[in-house]
């Protein structure tokens, strides 16, 4: 744990976020927050013509380094995946992606972006009806 969480990759993504911004032509957008940290994330997803494959993802938001770096990395990782593949991602995939051990107290920060993307896709497919995602159960 610890400084281990702040390896160069995390800090790099936090300081230089990839795919940061909002999309005018997003197929769907969704927002979420992690109340305990005050982290907020918005994910904008554009699908290809098959209405299934993720073409591009942009994110915006504000919060701790773990939440923002996770969103930055995820925005790249999701490109080319299908919505079904997105739905199958779990906590371990996020931790693997981050490449560091995440302490139990910080796991909500790490998984926020993933939950926002997954909930956004569910809402788009009309499997879920919420306004915003939260990491509080």
């Amino acid at each position: 744990m610890g400084s281990d969480m702040y390896r160069q990759q995390i800090l790099d993504h936090y300081k230089n976020p990839r795919n940061y911004g909002e999309l005018d032509d997003a197929t769907f957008s969704h927002v979420g927050e992690n109340p305990s940290c005050g982290d907020t994330i918005r994910m904008d997803v554009r699908l290809e013509d098959d209405d299934e494959t993720i073409e591009y993802v942009a994110f915006s938001g504000d919060g701790c380094a773990i939440s923002q770096a996770s969103a930055s990395m995820l925005s790249s990782k999701l490109q080319g995946l299908t919505l079904d593949e997105l739905a199958e991602l779990d906590r371990d995939d996020v931790v693997d992606m981050l490449g560091v051990d995440i302490s139990p107290m910080r796991i909500k920060c790490a998984v926020l972006a993933e939950k926002v993307a997954q909930d956004g896709a569910k809402i788009y497919r009309e499997d879920l009806d919420i306004d915003a995602t939260t990491t509080e159960e």
Binding site: S3, Y6, C64, R106
Partner: peptide, 22 residues
């Protein structure tokens, strides 16, 4: 430039227990 939860994690590495949050 450093979120209080990040600061708290980094301090924790050095054995320092403080509160971060609201």
């Amino acid at each position: 430039g450093v979120h209080s939860h990040d600061l708290s994690s980094i301090l924790s590495d050095q054995g320092i227990a403080i509160r971060a949050g609201d």
